[in-house]
Design a binder for these strands. Structure first.
Lengths: 346, 346
DNA sequence: TCTATTTCATGTAACGATATATATCGCGGT
DNA sequence: ACCGCGATATATATCGTTACATGAAATAGA
């Protein structure tokens, strides 16, 4: 047996009305709690029939009529098909989903490449009240993607986007990457580090630019003769990071500190040093960025800047709900604080 | 400036029709590529107006009429508000989202507590073509939740659920946890381990039961006098795991091997041993389960069973699409193979 | 008894799209 | 001249729900 009845139609409001011997309008009133218009007895009768027939309101019909959406779209623009498997993104989505779900909203996830945004998203049958976007790629691509989202004439919230476009009304939600970079610089300078090596992914990611900018600010302010070298790894993968670090160290002296653009990069670099009998933190200090719990498992425990991705998602959810309820949508930038987490690698 | 026009109405198919001087039906035909019914010239005219007016089809209206959904619901039933932040779940969701998005479907995420499933989901305005469910909790709760999903009369795919309910038509997708458990047993027995300690979370999670069952099978088949002790940690948190391991070891001799129900548990146990000057793997061998990349960063590299969560999600997506297209939905169980990944801890 | 007022319930017309059936045109064949 | 046919285009009804206006009892006040 696969289905009880060959094509059992889902009960509609009319079926309920007929069964309860009232008009569809009365059923609708019961459903929407407009109790001024329906007597207690009728209400009970209708509710019994709703239960008995297993009636569920059809959202499409309702939303068509009331012109309201109870769903927010999360758009993740990335080349990788595993867009969501990244731990940072996944934390953001978790926080967002939680806030929205608690407010009886739903989150709809859509991953796509930048060039698909135009064609596929816009013609797609996918109806939401607003968009939260996580957009990878370089500055110009990012801005183009944001503009396309804004063209949809709906509230847009963008994560990790420090640049506010001219004349565009969207919210930006990010953490204080620059401040985090400064904290790292200050911490290392206090330990008399003179020679800094930063390892960043080749992909142009604005949050990482900010982290570097903060680091440079710190060096400029308090760094005397401190030097910063930045090298880029083809990807964030373990192998690529170790590769680029190896190449750099082959014709440069050991730096005083290696700063990973994020925790995986820092850990990969650290393990490379271990394998070459460099002591951490005695010979080289190491700092990461993001504060992923999983990376706390490496020993020695990584010094990092905790960026609270989950809270980032929560904040986005709250901002979106607020705007949907007020009906107003003006540009605004939320910058969440970061927290320096000193481990044993510095 | 917040909005250009106070309340610019979104263009409808009628607006386009009027602008292109054709009937709405013709616009609809263009939109749906029914080119037999529209001349090339008309098509171009309509498309220009669509572009000019920024027309987008309203999904609710269309779905109401064609009675079709292009969205799949992912229901995550859990007590924790951070339901999605778990790395395993996040990988599953990533795989699922990727497959669905490629097929022009959308994934809608809904996290909730078990007891909310009834009231909130069923009355919610949230319309999908089927459900993929990740359900935490003990056996009876899980089954009750599955039944409630099935009551919605839509295709249901459940992850990590080895028990197939009587008379219920849903798909179960999981990995070969039992086989993984056997692999662990065989591997350790080959290294002459006699005394096994398994650390599991207190919460009753069927996949973990299966892993233990596989381990027991291996011991029974080849284990001579091998003994297995199972202890439960209040949660999977670092502190709780270390706590329960400490308590156990305080009045028991060191086992030959500690098997974590998953990687975080195994790593927590391992770090506890380090802190107490126990050598791994010389004094105690350690094995995890899941193969999370992040845990590869711990040194020595953890021996684990790779469970390919991402592929689990992909398989669910394919299964769901297949069933939606065929219109048939019969019970079926997919069991994905696991891969033993020998690290340096055994 | 007759009018106000309240309480409960209903009829009708949308929301924006599409399925179906029906029209109109021009053209080739007879 | 007539029929038939293919190629285009349209009119109408409908999906399930709710907003709005209206109606019919019942209650109250005089």
């Amino acid at each position: 047996m696969t289905n009880e009845a060959p094509a059992r139609r889902r009960a509609t409001i009319k079926d309920v009305a007929k069964a309860a011997d009232v008009s569809p309008m009365t059923v609708s009133n019961v459903l929407n709690g407009r109790l001024q218009y329906v007597s207690a007895a009728t209400k009970k009768r209708v509710e019994r029939e709703i239960e008995r027939l297993g009636y569920r309101r059809q959202a499409n019909a309702r939303n068509l009529r009331v012109a309201e959406q109870r769903s927010i779209g999360m758009v993740i623009v990335d080349e990788s098909p595993a867009f969501l498997a990244d731990f940072f993104t996944c934390q953001v989505v978790a926080g967002l989903a939680n806030v929205l779900n608690s407010a009886d909203y739903t989150l709809t996830v859509q991953g796509m490449r930048g060039d698909q945004l135009e064609t596929s998203m816009i013609t797609r049958n996918f109806e939401v009240g607003g968009f939260c976007a996580m957009i990878a790629g370089s500055g110009e691509e990012r801005r183009a993607a944001i503009r396309r989202l804004l063209d949809l004439d709906q509230p847009v919230i963008v994560f990790q986007e420090p640049i506010t476009l001219e004349g565009a009304d969207f919210c930006a939600i990010r953490q204080d990457d620059r401040g985090g970079g400064r904290l790292i610089g200050d911490h290392l300078l206090a330990r008399r580090v003179e020679d800094f090596l930063a390892v960043v992914p080749a992909q142009d990611w604005p949050a990482i630019e900010e982290r570097l900018a903060g680091l440079r600010e710190s060096l400029a302010a308090n760094g005397g003769g401190a030097r910063l070298t930045v090298i880029a790894s083809a990807s964030e993968s373990f192998a690529d990071v170790q590769d680029v670090v190896a190449r750099h160290l082959s014709d440069h002296p050991l730096p005083g500190a290696i700063i990973g653009a994020n925790d995986p990069i820092a850990t990969a670099a650290m393990l490379y040093l271990f394998d070459h009998d460099v002591r951490v933190p005695e010979d080289v200090r190491i700092v990461g960025f993001n504060g992923f719990e999983a990376h706390r498992y490496a020993r020695p425990r990584l010094t990092t800047v905790d960026s609270a991705a989950y809270q980032l998602g929560e904040q986005a959810g709250r901002a979106m709900l607020e705007r949907l309820e007020s009906g107003r949508f003006a540009r605004h930038e939320y910058i969440l604080p970061v927290h320096f987490d000193a481990g044993a690698t510095t």
